[in-house]
Design a protein around this nucleic acid. Structure first.
Lengths: 104, 104
DNA sequence: CATTAATATAAACATTCAGTTATATATGAT
DNA sequence: ATCATATATAACTGAATGTTTATATTAATG
């Protein structure tokens, strides 16, 4: 059962534009911090702080692979997030635009 | 199509405990301001300000009936809110507890 | 071991925001 | 008209929050 307190905390995490965009990005695929920094065009500490909040709130997982820390969604057990996540705009363009620059 | 900006604004409206509780109350039935003030045990201006934000955000409708202004949900056209609204805890107890006091 | 790259943390600042208090508006009743 | 009730608005205050700058940590590399 979800309490109002838990649900409002969760909504607060999604109420920030940067964090919601991160969630939209992670919906496409897992990413490391520098991926997100590149795409969102902001500073690394800024993204790190937002990711920390998302992690503390249980909305994302982190897993280290050598120097990189990859973040991914952790929302399977959160039915209250289904429809908002479903309605997030696609980030495919932003991601592929940057893949072009990275020339892989 | 919903933009990140629009969606995050919407999440911000639901990120406050008082506002989210109001939404849960209105899910049960339409209510006037004094109903909500009584149930949430806070001041009338506090509730009025929250209702104004919810109205500006398009989440509730208001309709006047003599002295009373009744508020009701306006979420049919907002699919991103389906699951969060669905997961809100029931407010039936809080509502009926207060109906007892009102001795109707 | 020194250096570089990736990420995290801390401190500081500016802004936003919820709640309160006081006042204004509007409706109905006497 | 006056009064009471319901609601809204405005000004204020304190707390929370996002972003930046600077520094620390961690891992790979030469």
């Amino acid at each position: 059962m979800n309490t109002i307190d838990e649900l409002s905390e969760c909504m607060k995490l999604l109420s920030d534009k940067t964090r919601l965009t991160i969630m939209a990005l992670l919906k496409e695929k897992e990413m490391c911090v520098c991926d997100i920094v590149d795409i969102l065009q902001t500073t690394q500490p800024n993204i790190s702080q937002h990711l920390r909040k998302l992690k503390l709130g249980g909305l994302v997982n982190e897993t280290r692979r050598s120097q990189w820390i990859y973040y991914s969604l952790n929302i399977e057990d959160k039915p209250h997030l289904y429809s908002i996540m479903q309605q997030l705009p696609s980030m495919k363009e932003e991601i592929s635009a940057r893949e072009g620059i990275k020339c892989d």
